[in-house]
Amino acid sequence: MFHLTREDPADRWEVEALYDLCFAPGREALSSYRLREGIPPVRDLCRVARDADGILAGAVRFWPVHVGLRGAEALLLGPIAVHPTRQGEGLGAELMEDGLTRARAAGWPRVMLIGDAPYYSRFGFTRLCGVEMPPPTNPDRVLGLGDWAGVTGTVSPWAH
């Protein structure tokens, strides 16, 4: 049993340590991190999962981005991570579903991520044709959920 709560500023370093553990060195060199620089995540959507002893087991963050010349608003989901000792317990799916439910309730029309289509398709994500992440990103890994009709172009940092 896990307890999901909003990520607080005090959680930051513990969450960063989890991301360091779960992802390859140099993760911050990925193009998705360029979209996050200097932009705060959408705090009400960022969640942490703790076990009964209060130990961090997982975390997910959501970041606002713009897509295309018209600047369509979207959320960039990620990173999402589950501690290696807690994987296989459904926590990643729980974090994903909780975050997506909250995003819809907050009025976000679309969510995107960079990931493996066979895994994320179970949450409704499909390949986004015509939406381009800054290089180097494999276009087959650019996935979206929600209302993407007529939205094309390059993903850019939030400019509000």
Score class of each variant (00 low, 15 high):
Gly146Ile: 11
Pro139Gly: 10
Ala106Pro: 07
Glu28Tyr: 11
Arg102Asp: 09
Leu100Trp: 04
Leu113Asn: 13
Pro25Val: 06
Leu128His: 05
Cys46Trp: 02
Pro136Arg: 14
Leu100Gln: 11
Arg61Asp: 02
Arg50Lys: 12
Pro109Met: 11
Glu14Asn: 02
Ala105Leu: 14
Asp8Gln: 15
Ala17Asp: 09
Pro79Asn: 14
Thr152Ala: 06
Ala72Glu: 15
Leu45Val: 01
Met112Ser: 11
Asp44Val: 03
Glu16Thr: 01
Leu113Glu: 13
Arg61Gly: 01
Gly90His: 04
Arg43Trp: 03
Leu75Ala: 06
Arg127Cys: 11
Pro84Glu: 03
Glu132Arg: 15
Arg47Tyr: 09
Leu45Ala: 04
Ala117Trp: 11
Ala24Pro: 09
Pro139Tyr: 11
Pro79Tyr: 08
Arg36Phe: 08
Tyr19Met: 00
Met96Glu: 06
Arg6Thr: 15
Leu100Tyr: 08
Glu7Val: 02
Ala74Ile: 07
His83Cys: 01
Pro134Glu: 07
Pro64Arg: 09
Leu4Ala: 08
Asp44Trp: 00
His3Tyr: 10
Tyr120Asn: 06
Gly144Glu: 07
Gly115Ala: 13
Pro25Phe: 07
Leu145Met: 14
Ala93Gln: 08
Trp148Lys: 01
Pro40Gln: 04
Gly153Lys: 00
Val65Leu: 03
Ser31Gln: 10
Leu91Glu: 05
Asp98Val: 06
Met112Arg: 01
Ala117Ile: 12
Ala74Glu: 09
Pro84Leu: 00
Gly107Ser: 08
Ala93Pro: 01
Leu113Trp: 12
Leu69Cys: 04
